[in-house]
Each structure stands twice: as structure tokens, then as C-alpha cells.
């Protein structure tokens, strides 16, 4: 039984990071209807910047974490400004393909740095001995990671519910023409959505980097696993992203905990989300919390 609870705990840890990664993706989709295929690369960039600031420059890690969020905020904003601003009004298919190209560009740029191929790990700044409770253990990094994740998600929810900017972003996602007519600058909102997505991606990257170590493949995989999460949660729901992230984390941990090794299966945790994704697309395409206005063809 304690094995089960151990899986639950690690599932929640992984899942909350998925939720944070998916959050940025949902932000961009919600405001501008763009699927950002390059999200994993932005997450990776956030982790690398955090690492570079802490280890190579020598800034304390909490400060470095915040700084990397700020840097990625402007990075994502400039990405939107340079590549996507001039595509506003183009068919959505070419905008998505631009993000595919962007993914390739960022891949190339990351491979130019040592981060592309080598592994790094953050210096330990929290107690190394894990917290143990009723036979279930959780490390301090994971604990702090989960807390930061939920704090960020809470912050974003507040931002969207209460602040003027957040409300104007929601307005744009609802109806672009109507929000233009009441004086909201739609391009600015798009830029802001990208910037916020970059910020949350950097936070996710920093946390993943602390938990699993810095490895481009792992970080990149977090960017792709975002798709099953957002499809399960419904593409444009922040609550959906959070719930689906945790569900996906649990499913992954259970799959690799119980299925691996039996019937000659291996690494089922990696593939299960994608199988679920295909099944959801077939039977419940708007996900758990997505709005039901998907156009049937």
C-alpha cells in the first residue's frame, strides 16, 4: 500500500509541473488561438538561464530563478514581436507552422550552447534528506517545486480573475472584434500572453531542472507532454490544465509503476499520455473543461 501512496505522491509532484508547463501553452492558445509547438524549447531556455545565472554567474538561486523568469518574459515577448506579429490575420495553419519552425530554430540555438548535449545538475540548496511521512518519502526539492507551482497557478488565476490586464486578455480570447471596439490593443494582448507564457515556462523549467537535472531531452519532453495534458483538460481552460496535469502525472506514475516489467513492457509511462490523447480526441475532443464550441466538421 505504501508503494501505491508513493506513486500517488510522485504523480502529484510530476503532475503539478505538467500543470505549470501546460499553463503557458493554454495562455497563448486562449488569447490568440495559436498552438505553440515551441513551448518545450522555451521551458528548456528558462532552465538553462536559471542554471547559467546560478552556477556560472554566481547569483543566489532564488534570485536567479526570478531573474530567469524576467528574462524569459522578454524573450517570449520578442519572439512574438519578431515572428508572430506580422502573421496576425494570416490563416492559423501558417501561424502554427511558424511555431514549428521556431521550435527548430530554438533547437539549433540550444545545440550551439553546451546545454544542448551535456548534462548539468543544480547545486543542492535545500536539505538533502527527504521528508518521510507514513512510509511515503518526498524530497525537499519536490516539495518546494510543488509549492512554487501552486503559488504560480494561484497567482495566474488571480491575475485573470481580478486585474484589468487579465480581464482584457480574457476579453480578447472571447471576441477579438468586440474587444478592439472597446479599446483593447489586441496585438499588445498577444504579446503579453506570450510573455506570461514565457514567464510560467521559465518557472517550470527552473523547477524541472532542480528536480531532474538539466538535460535538454528531458526538458524538451516536458514541452511535448503538454499536448496530452491540454487536450485532456480542454485546450483553453486553466483549471483544466491544472487538473489534467495532475491526472496525467498520476497516470504516468501508475503506468510505469504497475505496467513496466509485466508482459515485457518498458517505459509505458512515456507513451501512455499519447495513447490517452488519441483516445480522448476520438471520444471527448473538448476535454474535461474545454468549452464545447469546437466546430464539428
Amino acid at each position: 500500500m505504501s508503494y501505491f501512496f508513493q506513486l500517488v505522491v510522485s504523480g502529484i509532484v510530476v503532475g503539478s509541473i505538467y500543470a505549470l508547463s501546460a499553463l503557458g501553452f493554454v495562455l497563448i492558445y486562449k488569447s490568440s488561438r495559436v498552438l505553440n509547438i515551441a513551448h518545450g524549447q522555451i521551458i528548456a531556455a528558462g532552465a538553462f538561464i536559471t542554471y547559467a545565472l546560478t552556477v556560472m554567474v554566481g547569483i543566489p538561486i532564488y534570485l536567479a530563478f526570478l531573474m530567469s523568469m524576467v528574462i524569459t518574459f522578454f524573450l517570449a515577448m520578442s519572439v512574438e514581436r519578431i515572428f508572430l506579429r506580422r502573421l496576425i490575420g494570416e490563416p492559423i495553419i501558417s501561424v502554427i507552422m511558424v511555431t514549428i519552425g521556431l521550435m527548430s530554430i530554438l533547437d539549433g540555438l540550444i545545440y550551439l550552447t553546451p546545454f544542448g548535449t551535456e548534462n548539468f545538475s543544480f547545486p543542492a540548496f535545500l536539505p538533502v534528506t527527504p521528508i518521510s511521512l507514513f512510509g511515503v518519502s518526498i524530497s525537499w526539492t519536490q516539495m518546494v517545486g510543488v509549492i512554487v507551482t501552486f503559488a504560480m497557478i494561484g497567482g495566474f488565476s488571480w491575475f485573470f480573475k481580478k486585474s484589468t490586464l487579465g480581464i482584457s486578455m480574457r476579453a480578447v480570447s472571447d471576441d477579438q472584434l468586440a474587444s478592439m471596439s472597446i479599446g483593447i490593443s489586441v496585438p499588445r494582448v498577444f504579446g503579453l500572453a506570450w510573455a506570461m507564457a514565457g514567464l510560467s515556462a521559465a518557472a517550470a523549467g527552473g523547477i524541472i531542472g532542480n528536480i531532474t537535472g538539466i538535460n535538454f531531452d528531458t526538458l524538451h519532453a516536458f514541452g511535448i507532454i503538454v499536448f496530452p495534458v491540454v487536450i485532456l483538460g480542454g485546450l483553453d481552460s486553466i483549471l483544466g490544465a491544472v487538473v489534467a496535469g495532475i491526472i496525467m502525472g498520476l497516470i504516468q506514475q501508475f503506468a510505469s509503476g504497475y505496467l513496466d516489467g509485466s508482459w515485457g513492457l518498458n517505459g509505458t509511462g512515456e507513451v501512455m499520455p499519447y495513447i490517452i490523447l488519441l483516445v480522448i480526441l476520438l471520444f471527448k475532443p473538448h476535454g474535461l473543461f474545454g468549452i464545447h464550441e469546437i466546430e464539428r466538421v
Binding site: G101, L109, Y111
Partner: peptide
């Protein structure tokens, strides 16, 4: 590094 970079730029 250069291959994905050039692909992406070209796209």
C-alpha cells in the same frame, strides 16, 4: 546545431 537552425529559419 546548424541543421535544425537552418531548417527552422527556412520554414
Amino acid at each position: 546545431a546548424l541543421k535544425p537552425l537552418s531548417f527552422g529559419l527556412v520554414i
